[in-house]
């Protein structure tokens, strides 16, 4: 599935990768690939500005860390982010239900 196919859902997918704990941008990109079974084909460079957008919205917090000689910016879900993730999930399930009902009718 290309980036257009998940238009509007990228934020929810990124938030979902952070549900189990903090992660840096490249790890988030890896988690999106892995959890989608390599089906998600998006320009991974856009994940970084998307994380800044989520930070601006108060859905994640980011901070620079140093580990193993490598500098990384690590992100963590906020309470607002968890709520946004839950809402995104509910919206997606509702949309899927509508699509299925119409397409299968």
């Amino acid at each position: 599935m290309d980036a257009d196919g998940i238009h509007g859902q990228l934020d929810t997918l990124i938030l979902a990768t952070l549900r189990r704990g903090e992660a840096h941008g490249y790890a988030i990109i890896g988690a999106l690939r892995e959890r989608s079974g390599e089906q998600l084909d998006l320009p991974s460079g856009t994940v970084y500005p998307a994380l800044r957008r989520l930070e601006r919205a108060g859905h994640v917090t980011g901070k620079w860390t140093q580990a193993g000689g490598r500098r990384r910016r690590v992100y963590e879900l906020t309470a607002e982010g968890r709520a946004a993730l839950e809402k995104g999930r509910e919206d997606w399930l509702a949309l899927r239900q509508v699509m299925t009902a119409v397409l299968d009718s």
Binding site: L42, P43, S44, G45, T46, Y48, P49, A50, R52, R53, R56
Partner: peptide
């Protein structure tokens, strides 16, 4: 190739800079 067209990435970054 994985990171995508520099123009697409720059556009997303510019939106954050604009905000």
């Amino acid at each position: 190739a994985d990171f995508g067209s520099p123009g697409v990435v720059a556009a997303a970054m510019q939106r954050e800079l604009e905000a």
